[in-house]
Computed example of a mutant assay.
Amino acid sequence: MQARLTPTAALLLSIPPLMWAGNAVVGRLISEMVSPMTLNLLRWALAFAILLPLAGNVLRRDSLLWPNWRRFAMLGLLSVGAYNALLYLALNTSAPINVTLVGSSTPIWMLLIGRLFYGVKVSRRQLVGAAMSIIGVLLVLSRGELQVLQQVRLVPGDVYVLMASAAWATYSWMLARPTTEPASLRQNWSAFLLGQIAFGLVWSALSSGGEWALGKGHFQWSWPLGAALVFIAVGPAVIAYRAWGAGVGRAGPAAAGFFINLTPLFTALLSTVFLGETPQTYHVLAFIMIAGGIVVSSRR
Results as ranks from 00 to 15, higher is better:
residue 125 R to I: 14
residue 186 R to A: 00
residue 205 A to I: 03
residue 21 A to V: 05
residue 68 N to G: 02
residue 261 N to I: 08
residue 41 L to D: 13
residue 89 L to N: 06
residue 208 S to I: 11
residue 190 S to M: 05
residue 106 T to S: 07
residue 195 G to D: 10
residue 64 L to H: 01
residue 179 T to W: 09
residue 203 W to S: 00
residue 78 L to E: 15
residue 270 L to M: 13
residue 46 L to W: 09
residue 238 V to G: 04
residue 161 V to Y: 15
residue 277 E to G: 09
residue 126 Q to S: 13
residue 245 G to N: 10
residue 140 V to D: 07
residue 53 P to G: 14
residue 103 G to F: 02
residue 159 V to R: 05
residue 68 N to F: 01
residue 23 N to K: 05
residue 100 T to G: 08
residue 112 L to T: 07
residue 153 R to S: 03
residue 42 L to H: 13
residue 93 T to N: 02
residue 181 E to W: 00
residue 76 G to L: 00
residue 287 F to D: 10
residue 202 V to A: 07
residue 46 L to G: 05
residue 112 L to S: 12
residue 41 L to P: 01
residue 28 R to S: 02
residue 118 Y to H: 15
residue 207 S to W: 10
residue 255 A to K: 06
residue 144 G to M: 07
residue 249 G to N: 01
residue 262 L to I: 10
residue 163 M to C: 01
residue 152 V to H: 11
residue 114 G to C: 11
residue 5 L to K: 11
residue 213 A to N: 02
residue 166 A to G: 15
residue 131 A to W: 12
residue 177 R to F: 08
residue 103 G to V: 00
residue 69 W to C: 03
residue 199 F to T: 00
residue 188 N to Y: 10
residue 171 Y to W: 12
residue 221 W to F: 09
residue 260 I to W: 07
residue 52 L to Y: 15
residue 17 P to N: 11
residue 266 F to T: 08
residue 283 H to L: 01
residue 180 T to C: 02
residue 78 L to W: 01
residue 177 R to M: 14
residue 247 G to V: 11
residue 48 F to Y: 08
residue 159 V to M: 09
residue 72 F to H: 00
residue 161 V to H: 02
residue 286 A to K: 01
residue 212 W to K: 15
residue 155 V to D: 13
residue 292 G to Q: 04
residue 181 E to G: 00
residue 224 P to G: 10
residue 5 L to D: 08
residue 15 I to V: 04
residue 121 K to T: 11
residue 136 G to F: 04
residue 297 S to T: 14
residue 176 A to M: 08
residue 289 M to G: 05
residue 209 G to T: 10
residue 111 L to V: 13
residue 30 I to C: 14
residue 122 V to T: 04
residue 101 L to F: 12
residue 257 G to R: 07
residue 207 S to M: 02
residue 188 N to T: 05
residue 287 F to N: 01
residue 148 V to Q: 07
residue 71 R to P: 01
residue 105 S to R: 12
residue 14 S to M: 10
residue 94 S to W: 13
residue 212 W to A: 08
residue 173 W to D: 00
residue 172 S to F: 14
residue 289 M to E: 07
residue 257 G to P: 08
residue 19 M to R: 01
residue 20 W to Q: 09
residue 14 S to Q: 04
residue 225 L to T: 01
residue 228 A to D: 05
residue 3 A to W: 03
residue 190 S to E: 06
residue 240 A to S: 06
residue 225 L to Q: 12
residue 233 A to T: 03
residue 49 A to Y: 06
residue 34 V to E: 15
residue 52 L to Q: 04
residue 141 L to Y: 01
residue 81 G to M: 08
residue 255 A to N: 08
residue 46 L to F: 05
residue 150 Q to G: 12
residue 104 S to I: 14
residue 230 V to S: 14
residue 184 S to R: 02
residue 203 W to L: 02
